[in-house]
Structure formats: C-alpha cells, structure tokens
Design a protein around this nucleic acid. Structure first.
Lengths: 177, 177
DNA sequence: TAATTTGTACAGTTAAAACTTTACGAACAA
DNA sequence: TTGTTCGTAAAGTTTTAACTGTACAAATTA
C-alpha cells in the first residue's frame, strides 16, 4: 500500500466511524458518509464526483445533499463558468449541532404543547360538568397533574433549545478547554 | 361519547403526539405509545395488559418494555403474590432525557475519538517517512487539521454530556421558571 | 432552431426494520 | 411428578425506508 492510500484509508476509517455516530441523530449512514467525503474534500464537489466516489446513484446524491443542506451541514457554492452545482461541507460543527436540534425539536415541542393545552381544556370542562361522575373526576384530576408536568418539561426543553440557538450554551460549556 | 371516553380520547391524542415526538430521539412510534400508556396508568401493568390495551403481540410488548428499561424510562416493579412482571413509567422526564443522551452518545464519542487518534498516528508516521512525496505530505497536513478540529468538537460534546449527566445543566437552565 | 447537459420527480426494486406466530425453557402449582 | 403459566428466542411475515433506473423539464450550447 502506498502512502497516498494510507491517507485515504485513514480518512475512510474515520468517515465510517463518524457516519455510524450520526445515525444517532437520525442521519443515515450513507448520508453521513457523503458528509465525510465533503468534509475532507479540498474543493467543492459536483453530484457526479460524489456518485463516482461513493459508488452510488446520482439521484441518491441529489437527495442526500439536499438533506444535508436542510440540516445546514452542506452549502451550495457558486463558481463562474461551472454549469454543475457545487457543494461543500459546512465547517462549523457547533453551528451544525445547534441547527440540527433546533430545527428538528422546535416543531415537535410546540405540537406537543398545543396538544396538551387542548386536552387540558377538555378535562377542565369535564370537571365543571355536573353530570361527570366522581370517579371520572378523580381520574381527570390525576391526568391534569400529568399534563401539567409534561407542560413544565416541554417548557424546559424549549429553554434548552433557546440556549443552543442563541449560542448561550457555549458560555456554560466553552468550546476550548 | 360519555365522560370517561372523553378523558381517554384526550389521553390518546397526547400520547400519539408524544410518541411522534419521540421518534426524533430514535424511539419507535409503537414504543412511544407504550410509554404513554404506562405514563397515564394509575398502577403498574403486566405484559398481557399492555398487549390488550395496544392490540399488539405480547412479544412486541416484551421487547418494547426492555428497550424502555434500557433507556431508564420504565422500571420493573415487585409486588408480592404477583407472578407476572409488572412495569411502570419512570416519572422523572429530566432524568430520562439525560440518560437517553448520556448512554447513547458516550459510546459513539469515544469510538470516534479513538478512531481519530489511530488515524492521526498514521498520518504523523507518514509525515516522518522520508519516502512520502511532498504532495501527500501537504494533504496529510490538511487532514491532521481536520482531525484536530473533530477532536476538539468531540471533547466539547463529551463535556456537554458531562453537564447532562451531572445535572449541572439544570443550574444553567433551571427546571422551573 | 435542435442537440446536450444537469438536477430531480416518479415508479420500481432492494434492503432493513417492525411486528407476529410458534416454540420452548424456567418458574411455579397441583 | 405432571401440568400450567410466563417471558422471550427464533423464524417467518409484513411494513417501511433506502436506493436505483428511467424519464423529463429547465437551462445551456451549437
């Protein structure tokens, strides 16, 4: 094995490890590998270069790159005289980390909160209804407590995401030791 | 629809919403629903009760419950005179949140770090090898920088997880407003 | 204008995950 | 002991996600 190959092999080993890790965040192994390829690439790449490098279809590269763009992990680059689209890896991993959780969590949290509020409203109506049996009322009281607990938790989660989004988290956990 | 049904419908709506949300953390919708069922249950449940309630197989309940146990979201309960295993939802969501990320991330981070170190070692050997061409050396220098960046990032991530695990995060982002 | 090239939508295929059924060992009961 | 019951392993099935190949619109070139 020549020296160049050693370097490429070292890259591949790390890219694979990184891609495995990313699957924890809901990023496919293939998409992770593409990110790794772009991360080490010295210049922006075209879809055709990616597909040749990874041995996959061009369509897959197209969708994978779009996914990574949506996560702010890859950006499109413009180069004069180049017809093909060029892409490069976003170099700020802390930024990507924040963006990943911010975008994917916000929606879910708000959705949960409004669902809870809807349910809480119904339960309160139920409590005020004279026809409701004491037994059901007792259950409703218990449920209300649980909804309230969940509501507090989602509020905390929202503030947690705030802290990521505003980069305040880096005051508490600084980037460099 | 009677009052009891209204209460159950409100529960189901929230459980479904919560389960959808959990899929962001790699928890299946079905497993999420099971957690929701246990969360609202006034007493610990058996596998048979779960399967009746969710209309799924007992085997699925068994594996789902084990998954939730591994994530510290569900715990086994002992009751004298009861042959069947009893399970209840862990009530501390903040604890579950910490545990979820702590357990799933730690392994990945360490794995990545050791992969990087292995690759870095090889690249340094490559740089010290007189037979290595200047071109390859230049690439190696660039790669080393990228590995170093990744290493710093994983170190940060580790400290981030530390902060979750030690509950220090709650000093910065308090549970109640 | 027509002929290429590029990215992606769409339909079809393959691979992976979720779930069920069957079967069986371990614990308990009779 | 034998007969039940319970939880789960293993194999099989169904569902879902990932990926490919074809086709086509938009942009570019000749």
């Amino acid at each position: 094995m020549n020296e160049q190959d050693k370097l490429l092999k070292a890259r591949d080993r790390f890219i694979d490890s990184m891609a495995k890790n990313m699957s924890l965040y809901g990023i496919t192994h293939s998409v992770g590998r593409l990110y790794g390829l772009l991360y080490f690439s010295e210049k922006p790449m075209t879809l055709d270069e990616m597909k040749d490098e990874l041995g996959m279809s061009k369509t897959s590269m197209s969708t994978a790159v779009r996914q990574l763009q949506e996560l702010n992990m890859v950006e499109k680059v413009w180069k004069k005289g180049e017809r093909k689209d060029l892409y490069q890896a976003a170099d700020d991993w802390y930024e990507s980390f924040s963006a990943l959780f911010t975008t994917s969590w916000r929606t879910g949290i708000s959705l949960n909160i409004s669902t809870i509020n809807k349910s809480l409203k119904e339960l309160h109506a139920l409590l005020e209804n004279p026809e409701t049996s004491d037994e059901v009322k007792a259950s409703a009281e218990l449920d209300i407590e649980k909804y309230q607990y969940a509501l507090d938790y989602y509020d905390w989660l929202n503030r947690f995401v705030d802290s990521l989004e505003s980069k305040e988290i880096f005051n508490h956990i600084p980037k460099k030791e």
